[in-house]
Amino acid sequence: MTRAANHPLTWGADPYADALRSGRGPLFLRRPDGWLLPLEVERWCAGADAADRSALRRCEGAVLDIGCGPGRLVAALADRGRRALGIDVSEAAVARTAAAGGTALCRSVFDSLPEEGSWDTALLLDGNIGIGGDPRALLLRTAELVTPSGLLIVETIAADVDERVQVRVEGRAAAGYGGSRARNGSGALFPWARVGTPALLRHAAATGWVSVEQWSVPGPRDYRPEDAERRFVALRRRARAAVPRSRGAAVRASSNTADTANRAAVSSSQRERKTSPGSPVADV
């Protein structure tokens, strides 16, 4: 099993773990060129909101939350009497999920997982389609985890984006965000992906998934107009014979660093502020 503690400082350690323990940011993903993406720690550490509930209502049977973070979705499903398991490479995330009443394991999605091939629904919300920096590899792996008719619910970025980036978790507040200061520190660089709905549909078609529903939910009132909704896509597996095989050991080996990119996902729920999709938020 690939444990978060065996990796460099990415999602599995400071400053992400500090933010989850406190339930507060600021926290960012930062590219080497200075591009910063604010991460919504406070929202993740709160209860499920209306957008989250729209996805949870569509879940079928047993649910696997990939990159569960502090566990708000797993806990909400447990409250509804649903069988749900979260996985996350951050031990702090797993601990917070348990404290919230959910069940979680400290695992990468590319590790060996319980009941592979028998989960009825898998979740990739809060931008977790970015895990590992290779959406197609992640979609292929997820197809191995769910039943032959399994459901996958993915949250996408509102913009038409399909990009791969190298980022690190940054615990230092950027200029222009209230002047607050988080614990200084950052993790190692790792690959991440940002995917809008059109790109997701292309990747899904290439990996044996079919779109069965798309919807959006308004965001909080203080969102900017371009960030005013969260977008979701429900995918269903095609017949087993049509699903390409994953890269197996090669994918798992490459994931040792890549999939330490777990919960603090990059998505329409972790949007750049005061910028277009590809431009820097701030340089610090």
Rank of each mutant, 00 (worst) to 15 (best):
L125N: 05
W119V: 10
D162W: 08
A95G: 09
A199I: 08
P26M: 02
T121G: 08
N184W: 12
P38D: 07
R240I: 04
K274W: 12
H203C: 13
E155V: 03
T97N: 10
V167H: 03
D88T: 07
T207N: 02
R72I: 00
P148M: 07
G278I: 04
G25V: 01
R181D: 12
A205C: 11
G132F: 06
L151H: 04
D79K: 13
G130L: 14
P220F: 05
A174I: 04
L56T: 00
G127A: 09
T156Y: 10
G102Y: 04
V212G: 07
R82L: 09
G187H: 01
S216G: 09
S186F: 13
V266F: 14
R252I: 13
W215G: 00
T207D: 00
L200T: 06
C68T: 06
C68G: 12
G132S: 06
D222E: 04
L36G: 09
A55K: 00
L77T: 11
P280R: 04
G101R: 06
V266C: 10
A249S: 15
A62H: 15
A78C: 13
V281P: 02
D120N: 09
T142S: 11
A4I: 11
K274R: 12
G150S: 02
L29M: 13
L27C: 06
S112A: 15
E40H: 09
S216L: 02
I131A: 11
R240G: 09
P8L: 08
A249T: 14
G187M: 02
L138M: 15
G176C: 05
P114L: 07
L139G: 12
D88I: 01
E155N: 00
V233Y: 02
W35P: 01
G69R: 00
